[in-house]
Every structure is written in structure tokens, then in C-alpha cells.
Design a protein around this nucleic acid. Structure first.
Lengths: 309, 309
DNA sequence: CACCCCCCTGAAAATATCTTTCAAATGTGA
DNA sequence: TCACATTTGAAAGATATTTTCAGGGGGGTG
């Protein structure tokens, strides 16, 4: 079969409820130009588009009916009709629900208070989008694999490297054997020793970071269960992933690089994995959690005497 | 022309938004038997009916397509298509109306979907709290110090260590000299060489982590500007901090250690610092940002739209 | 630089869905 | 029981949606 994006997503995504804007951003990079135009129109004015027929939307975006239908499919709906229904629902929610939210970009001359507000808002949005777009089936499968893993390797470079460390740290804390690698060579060297029953996790925003794909491929080929945490589920990294967890892609700007929002999203996924694993291994995890807490307590000195110079 | 119900209402009612059930009750008496059946079905299960085609709904109610269309008209819509859209909107509203009630603690037997919702909600809450509680004056002062710093040292251990690395990474990226230390001894060794014009940042949730207080004290005593990012502004760490940035303290539980929410909070503060500094040093930061972006681009292989094995 | 291949794209055919028409069925009052 | 009005659904007609298919670029290769 000629594998293109369509097949990858076929059947896996249930119709998105309110996370449509997020889905558009996630999938936009893998869309063709004209499909992007359609997706943009849909995300920009759900209510308006819900009032249009296929032909109307095609004309509005300067494309054809076929393209509109293709876009609807890509977004996870069986056809345009269903996308339209979802759009109507979204519009109704926006109408009655919260304010549309002022999401201006951060400007160079924004006062510091605005920066705080905008960043906080954006990160909240990112969290909501991620939660909405996360495939709980994949997540559950990933948790199951991690819970029984003999050993876990986590790969991530750059900003994702910190997230990788975070995951490894958390798993270690509940008594699992986990290690984060940011050196690609060492990562591959280690991956070679993985086998069935082990788990490898790659974290990459772009889904195309060779440095974390290679180790995952090696792990995959050696029979380990592989997990990808990526913003581009259609990226190369998914080829070697048994389970793909999708992070949301926030609109980025010069003062807000992609690394910043992707990190928020990735961390939420990592937290979910951690809690899931902790639940499934509660018998051993609970004591381990308290034990590490106790051990650290003595490093926090008692409150000392007063003031500054 | 034979006057029947259709003409009476034609054009007078704008498409009902959410008052559909009411409209059904109002109009029911003037409906014929089969139309009542349709109206009943529609009012009883908007979501379910929205998923049906005219034919489907006709079969469900044991009537014909014509009757369904007539009912839609009576309710004030131009046709069944539009009734269906309104139904979808109504369903979505009802759906979102139900508060997910995610305020509860995470339990051991929570299904994975609940875990995702609760974690996302908690982190959003943490962000809101942090943004609300952040002292913008202190933040501004900290930003000013960082922006002109000759050199920046960041201290953090454990979970806060990752946040420290994140800050250092970001500052490096816009051309500042920054380094994160998680080894207390090396941190102190380095702190000794700091002087006026340099900045030291300590990150600690408890505000009482000796390992990061000591280096900060040394930096403080050597004349460097010191910043503390802590959840306990009254803790020992503040003694040696010129500027104290307060992170929020979320309710913690066994399955959700403090490290998890404090991290979210700390990262928001770090992001604010970063954006603030980037704003103030835009002339040099902007090129540096694009430069590091360009340099990384070639490490991302060309987008492959290929499928899985 | 020319070539080729692959994939995007929209026109038009095919299908599904919705709307209208119309005649049979049903009920109603004399 | 009959005449009449009303309701109802089958099927024809009109739209809307989906699929098919062939022409047109863009990018890589020799």
C-alpha cells in the first residue's frame, strides 16, 4: 500500500471534540498547501465554516471540494459532513462558554506583567490541547509496557533532553531501572543491549531528530518495546515506535521558540506516564516514594537565624 | 393555499440555539402524532439524533423522511440539515456543561483518562496561581540583572536541577554566558569566582535545600547579584537573595509529589525570566535565536511521509 | 540542463442525502 | 355511508458529498 498520512491516521483518531485547533496545528506541517488553507479557515472561524457546504468552503479557500474532504479526513472525521457537525458543536461551545481568549503574540515592548500573563495563558492552553489530543489507548499501552519493563532507556537531546531526564528521574524514584541519554553515541551503544521486555522512549518535538531516532531504531530492532513522544506523529520517529504519544504544537514566535511550549506538553505526557506506572506498581512504588522523601529530608536544614547584611 | 402549521410559523422563528427542548414542548400540541414522535426523539437525545441522517431518524421514529423534514421546519429551521447542525451544537454544550469534577486527588484506581484530565487541570491551576502570585517588580529587577550580567550561574539539585539546566540552556541560546550546576561542591567552587556584575540563581522548592543555598551565599558574599526561585519566600534561601521569585505550592499527594507541580511553577518563572531578558537584549538575542535554529535545522532529516513497517 | 517520477490538485462522475411532490390512507362530521 | 379535510409515506427531484481520474508542478537524478 502506498502509505501516506491518510492511512497512518485512519481509524486511530476519534472525532475531536474541542481540541480542533490543536489538532490543526499538530497536523498542519504534514498537510499540503491547499489543505493547510482549508485547515486554517476551519480553525480560524469554526462558526462561519459550519454554515458552509463543501462547495462553499472550497470556494472560500480557493480550493476544490475534493481538497476539503481530504482535509476533513486528515483531521480524523469520516467526511466533511462530520467535520461540519463538530464545527457546529465547537461554535456553540465558544459562543456560550469562555471568552475567545486574547492570544496576542509576545512583543518586544510588552511590559513584564503582560509577559507573565501571556506565557501563563499560552502554557495553560498548551496543557489543555495536549490533554485533549492525547490518545489514552496509546498512553495506556505505553504505561503497561513501562510498568513491567526490566529496564528503561530514554533518549532526548536539547530541550527534550531535560524532559528525558525528568522521566528517568521519576521512574528511578519509584524503583524502576531507568536511564536518560543525551549522547547519541552512548545511547546507541546502550540500545544494542536492549531486548524484549525492555522499553526505549524517544522524545523529540520535530519527530525528525536523527540523534534520538537512531537509538530508538536500534532498540526496536533488538526487540524492545519502543515509545515515541513527539509533536509530529507522522514523522520518521514513528516508524520505529510501537506506541506514539502526540504532544501539541503551539503557535510559536521569535520570543517564544517551539522548544518552550513543546516542553510543557512533553512534561505533561511524562507526568501521565509516571502516574500511570506508579498506579500499576503501587505496591512497590508507594514505599519507594516515601523512602526517597525521607532520605532527602535531612538535607533541608532547619530554619536559620535572621536577616541580610 | 391550504393553511397548515407550516405556514403559520414560517419565517417567524430564528433557529433555536439551546431552547430547543422548550420549543418542542411549546409546539408539541400543534403537532401531528408522527411529528410528535420525531420531536420527542430530538428533544430526548440531541446527540444521538445529530448522528443520524434523515432516513435514519425516520426509521428510528417509525416515520418517513418527509415527516422528519416537516418537523424540522416546524421547529424553525429551513430543513433537516440545519436542525442537525443545531443539534450537534446543543450536544456539545451539554457535554461541556457537565463539570468534569477533576478537582479530586488522583486515586490508585483512576482510569488513565482521568489521570490525564486531573494532571492537566492541576498544572493549569498551578500556572494560574504562579502567574497571579508572581511579584512583577522583583521579576523586573531580576530580569534587569540577568540582562546585563557578565556571567550567570544557576544552582539546582534534584527536580529543580532540570529547571536550572533549562534556564542556563535558554540563556546560552541568546548569547549569554550561563551555566547550571547540580554538583554542590563544583557550584561553590565556581561561586567563589563570581563578582559584582555577575548573577547567581538558586532554584529550590523548599527554600531550605542546603546544597543550593551554600553556593548562593558564597556568590552573595562575593558581591554577585543573587536571585532565588522558591516556593517558600520565607525560607533560609532568601537570606542571601537580592531578588526572590515565588513559585506556587500546589496541594500534593502520594501519587503527585511536590516535585511535579513545583517544576511546572518554576518553569513558568524561568520562561518569564528568559523572555524578559530576550526583550531587553533583543538586538543580540534575535540573531542568536535564529542562528541556533539554523544550526540545528540540518540535524533534522528531510520530512519523510513514510509509514511504519 | 533535461528528464523523470511522484504527488498534489481540481473537474467531473458517482453516490449519498435531503427536499418536494403527490396520491393513498386515515380520520371526521353530517 | 359519504364527502371532505388532514395526515402520511413512497418515490421523484434537487442538493450536497464523496470518489475517481487525468493533468500539472516540484524536486531530485543522471
Amino acid at each position: 500500500m502506498t502509505s501516506n498520512v491518510k492511512e497512518i491516521f485512519a481509524g486511530e483518531a476519534p472525532p475531536a471534540p474541542a481540541a480542533l485547533a490543536a489538532k490543526v496545528r499538530t497536523l498542519a506541517p504534514s498537510m499540503t498547501r491547499s489543505m493547510q488553507r482549508v485547515a486554517e479557515a476551519v480553525a480560524g472561524d469554526p462558526a462561519g465554516c459550519a454554515a458552509l457546504t463543501v462547495t462553499g468552503l472550497a470556494e472560500l479557500t480557493g480550493t476544490s471540494e475534493a481538497t476539503v474532504v481530504r482535509t476533513a479526513r486528515l483531521l480524523g472525521y469520516p467526511g466533511y459532513r462530520d467535520l461540519r457537525l463538530a464545527l457546529a458543536g465547537l461554535a456553540a461551545q465558544q459562543q456560550s462558554g469562555r471568552a475567545p481568549a486574547v492570544t496576542a503574540d509576545i512583543a518586544v515592548d510588552d511590559p513584564i506583567a503582560d509577559v507573565v500573563a501571556k506565557l501563563a495563558y499560552d502554557e495553560q492552553q498548551t496543557l489543555a490541547d495536549t490533554a485533549a489530543g492525547l490518545d489514552t489507548v496509546q498512553l495506556g499501552a505505553a504505561v503497561n509496557a513501562l510498568a513491567v519493563a526490566r529496564r528503561v532507556d530514554v533518549y532526548g537531546v536539547g530541550a527534550s533532553g531535560l524532559v528525558a531526564q525528568d522521566l528517568a528521574q521519576k521512574l528511578l524514584r519509584i524503583g524502576h531501572v531507568a536511564h536518560a541519554h543525551s549522547d547519541p553515541h552512548l545511547a546507541i551503544t546502550n540500545a544494542v543491549t536492549l531486548r524484549s521486555g525492555d522499553v526505549a522512549v524517544s522524545i523529540t518535538h520535530s519527530g525528525a531528530t536523527g540523534d534520538v531516532i537512531e537509538p530508538l531504531r536500534v532498540a526496536f530492532e533488538h526487540g524492545a518495546t519502543t515509545i515515541a513522544i513527539t509533536g509530529r506523529p507522522d514523522g520518521p520517529v514513528s516508524q520505529y515506535a510501537d506506541h506514539v504519544l502526540t504532544t501539541s504544537i503551539a503557535r510559536e514566535s521569535e520570543l517564544r521558540p517551539a522548544a518552550m511550549s513543546s516542553r510543557t506538553s512533553q512534561l505533561l505526557v511524562v507526568d501521565c506516564l509516571f502516574v500511570g506506572v506508579a498506579q500499576r506498581t503501587y505496591e512497590t512504588a508507594a514505599p519507594a516514594l516515601s523512602a526517597s522523601y525521607e532520605a532527602l529530608a535531612h538535607r533541608h536544614k532547619a530554619a536559620p537565624r535572621g536577616g541580610r547584611s
